[in-house]
């Protein structure tokens, strides 16, 4: 049975080898890039796991030769403060109190608006959409002061001034998240065949039913990416939080860390530990949402 491989077979084998080789090269490059990206994060993690006293004495990489340096000390200190105002856990809670409602509201309102823009039949939909796209270029810092004033006016008129409160920050973030959210959702929803909605309508579904039983499930990949973007954007926001919550007792993690860095020499351990805590939450969000990034949700609908 052992035959001399034909020219064609030999060529195939050669090609395969080359392919495998080039794949190896790609993998190495990818690995290097990953390491390059991960070094700061890993160093942060290690620093947060070393006692405060070692910071000035030796570099974090010495941990590889002396793993006994590692300790949960910083974390126990931080967490032992509990939820007292000004502590890490309190800031973590505040961050979540801002970020979660913003993410939900932006995803929900964007989907509803996009639904109406795509499947509604009212006049001027395209114009409204163009205006919304135009709003995406308005830089956030332009609006800070006018909105503060607007909030104050609201206080004068209704006795309800959102300035300095968590709802105040939430409203601001939602308003600035919507243009991109609507843009993203509209572009995704235009890919859903209209026939599906009409089929639903004939079968007796009302607009709400069509929205949440047909459109929403099909739009999950877009909603998941929007939610991740929005979550991370708001989670990392310092500017808006500083302007609207600067003097507040409860501040989000970004402000907490910012305050600590102002006296870095004394507080490096809190900064590193707090930073690790603040990375952790977006990671959880990312990994729990990524399963919705399925391609081909629409397969089999038509044709």
């Amino acid at each position: 049975m052992s035959q001399v491989p034909s020219v064609r077979e030999r060529r195939t084998v050669g090609l395969l080898k080359r392919l495998r080789l080039s794949r190896a090269v790609v993998n190495v490059i990818l690995g290097l890039v990953a390491v390059f990206w991960l070094v700061p994060t890993i160093s942060l993690l290690v620093i947060s796991l070393r006692p405060e006293s070692l910071f000035g004495e030796s570099g974090w990489w010495t941990v590889f030769t002396a793993p006994s340096q590692l300790t949960w000390g910083n974390y126990t200190t931080i967490f032992s403060q509990g939820f007292a105002a000004g502590g890490v856990l309190d800031s973590l809670t505040t961050s979540l109190e801002i970020t979660i409602p913003v993410t939900i509201l932006v995803a929900l309102i964007s989907s509803l608006a996009a639904y109406s823009l795509v499947f509604g039949s009212w006049r001027g939909r395209d114009w409204i959409f163009l205006v919304i796209v135009g709003l995406m270029v308005v830089p956030l810092q332009v609006a800070l002061i006018p909105v503060v004033q607007l909030y104050r006016e609201m206080g004068n008129l209704f006795g309800l001034n959102p300035y300095g409160t968590i709802p105040g920050v939430i409203i601001f973030h939602v308003a600035f998240g919507l243009p991109f959210g609507i843009f993203l959702m509209r572009n995704f929803l235009t890919g859903i065949p209209k026939d599906l909605l009409e089929a639903g309508r004939i079968e007796g579904a009302g607009e709400w039913k069509i929205f949440y039983s047909i459109v929403l499930p099909l739009a999950l990949p877009a909603i998941a990416s929007l939610a991740i973007f929005q979550f991370i954007w708001v989670w990392n926001d310092l500017l808006v939080a500083l302007v609207f919550l600067g003097g507040n007792v409860h501040t989000p993690l970004t402000i907490f860390l910012y305050d600590q860095t102002r006296s870095l020499a004394a507080n490096y351990w809190i900064v590193s530990t707090g930073a690790v805590v603040s990375i952790f939450v977006p990671l959880i969000v990312f990994f729990s949402f990524q399963r919705y990034f399925v391609r081909g949700v629409l397969a089999g609908a038509v044709k």
């Binding site: 026939d195 629409l298 044709k303």
Partner: peptide, 20 residues
């Protein structure tokens, strides 16, 4: 009358099945 009140069924050229 709205489509749902007409008591008819429509089979689409594209099938229009709910993919999810």
């Amino acid at each position: 009358l709205a489509p749902r009140d007409r008591d008819i069924a429509l089979v689409f050229q594209s099938y229009a099945l709910y993919p999810h």
